[in-house]
Design a protein around this nucleic acid. Structure first.
Lengths: 149, 149
DNA sequence: AACTTGCAATTAACATGTTAAGTATGCGTG
DNA sequence: CACGCATACTTAACATGTTAATTGCAAGTT
């Protein structure tokens, strides 16, 4: 009884990924909303706090954002006083972005809760299954693209 | 050596889910772009084609869209002539949405390719791993929410 | 019937996703 | 040095995500 239609949404990978992501992100979004930063802005701040001064291209790569989105996010973060931007000393096309003390403080204020949510997920879902899931997702991401064959 | 910082992006579930979704959706989006419909519009059309006439609330539920997004999408689909909307016979708050022949034709024109992409994924990633991944994602989605404990 | 409460859909406002153009700078080559 | 091409953003334009407020209608209560 192979149907010629779409799979049930539970068996549709795109939708399953969507739902799973919402399940994980919901609580994090709620936490960040209280502080006035979005999920993506939080990601950028985290990257900057961990790796130090970076140029936008590398930030985009590490935080999984497209450059047009990042442009707007960096503007917002600058307005909020959470980052600073300066010209690259030798390459005038580039910038150097640095997190401010206020930015670090914001991270410090929320890291605990963030870790608590992570811990909740790990215990609630199971550490073994979480690892298995991450492995599968990373494998999927590593697939050769170009299914046009 | 337990660090007091964020996990590597490869081990961050939200980002891993994001990357995996992009891997799967990229080719589908490309296919749909040629026909002039978005990924979300395609989801709505599919739901309507499979389940017949529905009200917006149920469409939103089945296609994993929020009502405000769906409102705009239904407007766009109506403009494109792919769906029709009529008032609910007894409850004037509701509507009834139906896919048009043009809508069904659009699906017919792309279902083959869509299935080919699904098949590619299944073979490329492995049927067993794909099933395992879907199981884990569904389990995750089924978790009791409310980590504020 | 007036009141209250709840539901369906829309609107509003702001942020991001996505693709395509546009700008300015760096770089290699003739 | 002039030319052509690549790189690093930035803008633009449109669609969606997200939360809150709003409108119109339904249902139950007094």
């Amino acid at each position: 009884m192979t149907r010629d239609t779409a799979p049930d949404t539970n068996r549709s990978l795109p939708i399953a990924l969507l739902r799973a992501r919402e399940k994980v992100m919901g609580p994090i979004r709620a936490m960040l909303a209280d502080v006035g930063v979005t999920e993506q802005q939080w990601r950028v701040l985290r990257v900057l706090a961990e790796r130090g001064t970076l140029d936008p291209t590398e930030i985009a790569d590490r935080s999984c954002l497209l450059m047009p989105s990042l442009t707007r996010i960096l503007q917002a973060l600058t307005t909020k006083g959470l980052i600073t931007r300066e010209a690259h000393p030798t390459d005038k096309r580039r910038q150097l972005v640095t997190i401010t003390d206020a930015g670090r403080q914001l991270i410090a204020d929320n890291l605990k809760e963030s870790q608590r949510l992570n811990a909740w997920l790990r215990e609630s879902f199971g550490a073994d299954k979480l690892d298995a899931l991450l492995d599968l997702l990373n494998e999927l991401d590593a697939l050769e693209r170009d299914p046009r064959g």
